[in-house]
Design a protein around this nucleic acid. Sequence first.
DNA 1: ACACTAACTTACTAATAGGTAAGTTGTCAA
DNA 2: TTGACAACTTACCTATTAGTAAGTTAGTGT
Lengths: 187, 187
Amino acid sequence: MTKKKKQIILLTMKFIKEKGFLAFSYDDLAKELGITKAGIHYHFEKKGDLGVAVCTYLEETLEQTYSDIKQETIKTTDKPLVFLSKRAAQVDRHAVCPISALQADYNDLPGTMQEKVRQISQREVRILTELLEDAKQDGGLKAMDDLEGLAALLITSAKGGLQYQRVLGDAFFSKVWTAFNKLLKCD
Amino acid sequence: MTKKKKQIILLTMKFIKEKGFLAFSYDDLAKELGITKAGIHYHFEKKGDLGVAVCTYLEETLEQTYSDIKQETIKTTDKPLVFLSKRAAQVDRHAVCPISALQADYNDLPGTMQEKVRQISQREVRILTELLEDAKQDGGLKAMDDLEGLAALLITSAKGGLQYQRVLGDAFFSKVWTAFNKLLKCD
DNA sequence: ACACTAACTTACTAATAGGTAAGTTGTCAA
DNA sequence: TTGACAACTTACCTATTAGTAAGTTAGTGT
């Protein structure tokens, strides 16, 4: 993977978070990188190829965040929320989670990308479920039994919350975050 | 409001839920209605005009659902979830909540639409908060105090859940829904 | 000095987007 | 019968989109 390719992927990530995959263009990339549109096509022949590369990058950062958090020396019961917080921190202001953005465009994505988006979506929920299971085993979450349901609740709310934040401001996401804390500390 | 105008608005709603506001075109509408693109422009000169009309329609259906639920003879403690259920029922399969779709395109929307989307988003949260307050006053939700936070949690999760449903299937949204029920019945 | 290659640029195509101006058609009232 | 208006159609414009083919340039190994 060349430096330029990585640079293009990172910039594409930025555009996906701000505008979505369908709404950004090769020309947007070209202008910001100071090269021509055809120069981008040289690195990623079709837009779908670039999209798949971005998905692969998203997979990698997800697994990276996961292995980081497993090694960290914090209380196991805190890890679920730290995971969500780390993930949310990767989203810039006035943007949304890139996975959410890809889900929004899902119906019009090339098949190869749909497959990847499905995998990542599923994997993220699975990871949070595992962290919740660890937390429970460690003595937390006494009242909770349906940890898959809890993981689904937290993930969907976090993603939805980031989307609302764009419209209603930072204060709104703070409310959601406070609710998360209260929800997980009812032991 | 002519019949044709309403017909266009309803079809636009369908496209927004399936593809988003930016991704559907006047040509899509024209083909489905059996008239030409210019025929749509006759009724809604700019795409933004059509967008505002759709937003107004969304406002009306939201208020309609609200006044319906206030009059219904069901337990006050059940009304928050019935509200969410009624709202979710208005979303077809493999589509998302139209408000979510407009939030996703928010940054590229004309200013007049942004204002409307902000208002509707805020109003929906407010309505759910009121229903939760009524439920608490009626004896439910004993453990809960931050009802604004709870409303934010439920709304964001419902919206996020519908988006995940598109990718991971109906079973996923069911998990979220089950979590809602457990969450509100801890009295 | 020479050939090869990576990383481009220039110049193009076909399709689609939103939007407009001018003309057409059917209906209804005076 | 005639005029007027609503609801269109035809024909166009400009901008933007993804994508391609062919040519250029800078560096690298021999």
